[in-house]
Write a protein that binds this DNA or RNA. Structure first.
Length: 409
RNA sequence: GCGUAGGUGGCAGAGCGGUCAAUUGCAAGAGACUGUAAAUCUCUCGACCUUUGGUCUACGGGGGUUCGAAUCCCUCCCUACGCA
């Protein structure tokens, strides 16, 4: 059975794992490397699909867990699938709910996030404390994960099959295997246990997916885990790469986990040196400029991240000279655009002063204009990386950009 | 003019003899945010001093009672409402 997607590598980055390619899906093509816009609940917050398209987005990612809870995957199926439901005609993908195992479980109520700065080795050594008394909304079991809905407290149980079934109903072009996203502060023993589970769930996700004829128009990506261990990361990549059914294996791969900053180079490189070159790789949940450069350089084709839109709604905007907080007093009378080098709708038509006013006045349009800018900035940054690979000047581009972006600190 | 209720930090508004430099909200200043529990969250917010700490000036003005007053008394000024 042939894959619903096709991936063609156009050019490789000399001496590195990076590459530029074209990914074809049932709803259009994506020029990679590419940044995937996050629209968790079947909407890119604060933006219309037209705005999302106009700012350069090629593909949107929604979330299985959120859409299952609200409005329910059957409703989306009844609407003709995710794309039709949200009026986005381009490619789509859904995350499996695996990240919610982390964000509503181990990370719930803690200072843990997707990229952590915890570097104290003592925090990495101890066995995982079985903190049953810590409140959380997700509990991992051998067979699946119990979720307590953050919306109404009701209990829900996700298994690999359940996640895939929901994702079939949602109907995105690319779907992900159910996985357990672990924190880098977990012990090696826990990482091994979690990886074993993730691999079992990957196998079951793939088998269930292939068993449903409905799934043929959807590509399934397996998700590599393994924490910060080179051994586990490579083992995971190998396992998933070799995993197959009579109808084939995974169509591509996600690289998951909660990372430390340096893992963007090391862990990603380990994984991508093992994964089959001819299949696309998606680095899940990563999207800060430095991380994007390191990901692309080490062979990542797709990224998704809430940072551009969340930061935007909170008043933090990307510029070539680094991030600015538009709420700072100094921008109230600043009549320059957010970024003089930016070609987005917001920068072409509005001043920092206006944005500062909208944010202070808590006007809804603030989130819209800021989201347009941040998404444009990040999406086009990755587009520029792609072009730089094609033009054989990636390394120079990276150096020049980062030097200016981080020169302040 | 009489009566009543009030005058507290940028604003609103608690406190009603010591634990008050003063609850809380807003505003303001700054920070965080990486497969979205997020248009959210955290910190600061009288002045000065190097600190867990200390010193000073503060609850309309002035005076008093008291060991001690934003809190009680007197007086003046001002505000709102009611009656003339």
């Amino acid at each position: 059975m042939s894959s619903p997607i096709k991936f063609k590598i156009e050019k490789k980055l000399g001496g590195k794992l990076g590459r530029a390619g074209i990914l074809s899906t049932p709803h259009g093509t994506i020029q990679t490397p590419a940044f995937v816009t996050v629209g968790t609940k079947a909407t890119v917050k604060a933006l219309s699909p037209e705005q999302v398209k106009d700012l350069g987005a090629e593909i949107v990612l929604a979330n299985t867990y959120h859409l299952y809870l609200q409005p329910g995957d059957e409703i989306i199926k009844k609407n003709g699938g995710l794309g039709k439901f949200m009026n986005w005609s381009g490619p789509t993908m859904t995350d499996s709910g695996g990240f919610q195992v982390f964000s509503l479980g181990a990370a719930y109520g803690k200072e843990l996030s997707k990229v952590t700065t915890i570097t104290d080795p003592s925090l990495l050594l101890p066995e995982r404390s079985d903190d049953m008394d810590m409140p959380k909304l997700a509990t991992v079991g051998a067979d699946g994960v119990s979720f307590k809905s953050h919306l109404d407290g009701s209990m829900h149980y996700f298994t690999a099959e359940k996640s895939i079934e929901i994702q079939h109903n949602i109907g995105a072009d690319i779907i992900f295997a159910f996985d357990e996203c672990t924190s880098p502060v977990e012990s090696t023993r826990y990482q091994e246990e979690a990886l074993f589970r993730t691999h079992q769930w990957a196998k079951r996700s793939l088998e269930y997916h292939k068993s449903k004829s409905q799934g043929v128009n959807q590509a399934l990506f397996g998700i590599v885990q393994g924490g910060r261990s080179e051994e586990l990361r490579k083992k995971s990549a190998k396992f998933l790469a070799e995993l197959s059914t009579p109808d084939g294996g995974f169509d591509g791969f996600g690289i998951g986990g909660s990372f430390a900053k340096e893992d963007m180079s090391t862990a990603v490189m380990w994984v991508n040196s093992v994964l089959p070159e001819e299949k696309p790789r998606h680095l899940l949940g990563i999207g800060e400029p430095l991380d994007l450069f390191n990901g692309v350089e080490n062979g990542v084709d797709l990224f998704d991240c809430v940072a551009p839109t969340r930061m935007a709604r909170n008043g933090t905007l990307y510029t070539s000279d680094g991030r600015i907080n538009i709420l700072n007093a100094k921008y109230m009378g600043d009549i320059s655009p957010i970024d003089a080098d930016c070609g987005c709708y917001t920068c072409k038509n509005y001043t920092r002063s206006y944005l500062a006013h909208l944010f202070r006045a808590k006007e809804m349009f603030a989130g819209t204009l800021a989201s347009i800018h941040n998404l444009y900035f990040i999406i086009h940054l990755v587009k520029k990386m792609r072009q730089a690979i094609l033009d054989d000047n990636f390394t120079e581009f990276k150096e020049v950009f980062l030097k200016q972006y981080y020169k302040g600190g």
